[in-house]
C-alpha cells in the first residue's frame, strides 16, 4: 500500500509530463472540436456559432471525399507493394546475406529523410523538361512512354504513391525484421526435417507467427499514408486539377484561406475515419489471432 504522502510525491514527478500532455495534446484536441462548430477567420476577435452546419456541408463536399479517395488509393498501393517489398527484403536479410548491416542501414535511410527534400528530388526525377526518368526511358528506346509524370492526371497519383512507398518501406522493413528475428530457428529446422521447402516454411511457420506484426505494420501504414502531406505539397500541391489532392492538403487549403471552422470540422471527420479504421483493424487482428 502506497502512503498518501508517497503517492503525492510520485504525482509531482509525473506532473510536468501531464502538464505538457494537457497543453500540447488535450487542449488542441478540445479546441479543434470547439472551432469546428464555429465560423471563424482566425483573425477576428469574435466567432460565429453555426452548430453542425460545417459537418453537414462536409457530407456534400465532393472534393473532400475525392481527396479521401485519393489518399485511400495511395494507402492501398502502400499496403500491398510497400509492405510486400519490406517483407521480402526483411526475409532475405533474416535468412542471412553478406553485408546485411550495410543493407539494413541503406533501407532505413529514406524514412529518415525530410519529406519535402525527398519530394523536391523526385520532382526533378519526374520532370517533363529535364527529368532523369524521361532521359533514361528515351535512352533505352522507350521514348513513347515519356510523359510529364506529375502533370498528367493519369500518372500523377501513382507517381506520388511510388515516392511515398520508396520513402516508407524502410519502417516496415525494420519492424518486420525485428519480428522475424524473434521466431525460434528450431521451428524452421523442424519444418525442414518434415520436408517443408522455403515457401512452405514461410507459409506455415513465418506467416502465422508474424500475423500480429503484419497488423502493426498495416495500421502504421494506413495511419501514415492517409495523412500524407509533405510529399504532395512539395511535388504537386494537390494538382493537376485536384488529381493528387489528399485530405490534409485539402484541409490546409481551407486553413490558408482563413476558414478555420470548416477546416477543423474536416479534421475531426478525418480523425474519426482514421480512428474507425484502426479499431476495425485491431478487431480483425484479434479475431484472426484466435483462429
Amino acid at each position: 500500500m502506497v502512503s498518501d504522502r508517497r503517492y503525492l510525491n510520485n504525482f509531482f514527478y509525473v506532473l510536468p509530463a501531464i502538464l505538457m500532455f494537457a497543453i500540447f495534446t488535450i487542449y488542441p484536441f478540445i479546441k479543434t472540436f470547439q472551432l469546428s462548430v464555429y465560423e471563424w477567420d482566425g483573425i477576428s476577435p469574435t466567432m460565429k456559432f453555426v452548430g453542425l452546419k460545417n459537418y453537414l456541408e462536409i457530407f456534400s463536399d465532393r472534393l473532400f471525399w475525392n481527396s479521401m479517395l485519393n489518399a485511400g488509393i495511395i494507402t492501398l498501393l502502400a499496403l500491398t507493394f510497400q509492405n510486400m517489398l519490406a517483407l521480402l527484403l526483411a526475409v532475405i536479410i533474416d535468412r542471412g546475406v553478406k553485408f546485411d548491416k550495410f543493407f539494413r542501414t541503406v533501407y532505413f535511410i529514406p524514412p529518415i529523410l525530410s519529406g519535402v527534400v525527398v519530394g523536391l528530388v523526385w520532382k526533378w526525377i519526374y520532370d517533363g523538361n529535364y527529368g532523369i526518368l524521361n532521359t533514361i526511358l528515351t535512352h533505352i528506346g522507350l521514348e513513347k512512354y515519356t510523359t510529364s509524370w506529375l502533370s498528367n492526371p493519369r500518372t500523377a497519383l501513382v507517381s506520388v504513391a511510388v515516392v511515398h512507398m520508396w520513402k516508407g518501406f524502410g519502417w516496415g522493413f525494420v519492424i518486420l525484421l525485428a519480428g522475424l528475428q524473434t521466431i525460434p530457428r528450431e521451428l524452421y529446422e523442424a519444418a525442414a526435417i518434415d520436408g517443408a521447402d522455403s515457401f512452405k516454411q514461410f507459409w506455415y511457420v513465418t506467416a502465422p507467427l508474424m500475423l500480429p506484426i503484419f497488423f502493426v505494420v498495416s495500421v502504421l501504414t494506413i495511419l501514415g499514408t492517409m495523412q500524407i502531406f509533405d510529399l504532395i505539397y512539395s511535388m504537386t500541391r494537390g494538382g493537376p486539377a485536384g488529381a493528387t489532392e489528399v485530405p490534409i492538403s485539402y484541409i490546409y487549403r481551407y486553413m490558408a484561406n482563413n476558414e478555420l471552422g470548416y477546416a477543423t470540422a474536416m479534421a475531426v471527420i478525418f480523425g474519426l475515419v482514421l480512428f474507425t479504421l484502426s479499431i476495425l483493424q485491431i478487431k480483425i487482428s484479434r479475431k484472426l489471432r484466435k483462429v
Partner: peptide, 19 residues
C-alpha cells in the same frame, strides 16, 4: 511540358535555361 504543376520557381528555371 508540365506547366500545370509547375511552381513559379521551376517555371523561372525553365525560362532562364532557355527551355
Amino acid at each position: 511540358e508540365g506547366i500545370i504543376t509547375m511552381i513559379n520557381k521551376d517555371a523561372e528555371r525553365v525560362f532562364a535555361t532557355e527551355k
